[in-house]
Design a binder for these strands. Structure first.
Length: 280
DNA sequence: AAACAAACCTGTGCGC
DNA sequence: TGCGCACAGGTTTGTT
């Protein structure tokens, strides 16, 4: 579900609510959510600690603690983070509850129907062994910054389908299925082009498209699709779905050329949406 | 190295 | 109305 813009929206909401607050108690209701380690590890690692910041790398949320450890949360397909007043009714599939101290105590709820998401407390000095995929993550266009030159070099470094390359978190971190399809459409590039056959001019156009799409999606608070699964920590959805030009629009008229219909094909198990007229 | 398919789970929407 | 199937924002693993 959540891609970079959604995770960034959650990060901002979380930062405003939890930074500087002490964790008084932790409940783990579903072991699968803490499968990387154990309920004990998460409970002991968090209880009594104070969250000092909320950062994001790709789709990973990272909260440094005053203990020196770090809390990592990944929403995967269906995870949600909600900050609610203590004692609020908990939604179904609430798997982890983090109690936060304050004059008005709150609970941070990790809700996740499909249980792909995870919560782990790790030691950042051992990140390579405790969270290897984080250590190997590619450049985050927003958090790290990504220049056009840098991006063009990445495209030339391999010979792969451009869509697969954009979705590969080891190359560029944070782009998922929605923003990949939207960026390729805005740049006029088909999903099955070879990354190393993209011209410098096209690479510049794609770079600009990615930065624009991600930036605008963040401003819009992300995309909340028909199932309303994605919401920010306040329970409010985003509205970037209103600006989608190809994602989930198969069979509908292309909003750019207004002549062809958007086509959907399955690529490596992912729905891929594009305009056969605008993209080549 | 690159490209699929399958796996991990649950919920929803659609066609019949 | 009910059933069965396809499909879903992610990532890893195993197989060609």
């Amino acid at each position: 579900m959540p891609e970079l813009p959604e995770v960034e929206t959650v990060r901002r909401g979380l930062a405003a609510q939890v930074v500087g607050r002490r964790i008084t108690r932790v409940e783990v209701g579903r072991e699968r959510t803490v499968r990387r380690t154990s309920p004990r590890s998460v409970i002991d690692g968090l209880t009594g600690a104070t969250i000092t910041a909320v950062n994001r790398r790709g789709k990973y949320l990272l909260c440094p603690l005053d203990t020196g450890d770090e809390l990592m949360m990944h929403l995967r397909m269906s995870g949600r983070l909600l900050v609610v007043p203590t004692g609020s009714e908990r939604p179904p599939h609430t798997h982890v509850v983090i109690h936060l101290a304050g004059q008005e105590p709150h609970e941070l709820l990790f809700v996740d129907p499909r249980t792909f998401g995870e919560v782990v407390v790790f030691d950042p000095s051992n990140v390579a062994t405790e969270l290897p995929e984080l250590a190997k993550m590619g450049v985050d266009p927003i958090a790290d910054g990504l220049s056009g030159k840098q991006f063009a070099a990445l495209l030339q470094s391999r010979s792969r389908q451009i869509k697969a390359m954009l979705l590969d978190q080891h190359v560029v971190a944070g782009i998922g299925n929605i923003y990949c399809d939207e960026s390729l459409h805005l740049a006029g590039i088909r999903w099955d082009r070879r990354s190393d056959a993209v011209t410098p001019r096209e690479a510049a156009k794609l770079h600009a498209a990615i930065m624009r799409v991600l930036g605008e999606a963040i401003e819009a608070g992300g995309s909340t699709l028909a199932d309303s699964q994605y919401v920010g920590v306040d329970g409010e959805g985003g509205w970037f779905q209103l600006h989608h030009r190809v994602y989930d629009r198969a069979g509908q008229r292309c909003l750019t050329c207004r002549k062809a219909d958007i086509v959907r094909v399955a690529v490596a198990g992912r729905g891929t949406h594009f305009c056969p007229r605008c993209q080549s």
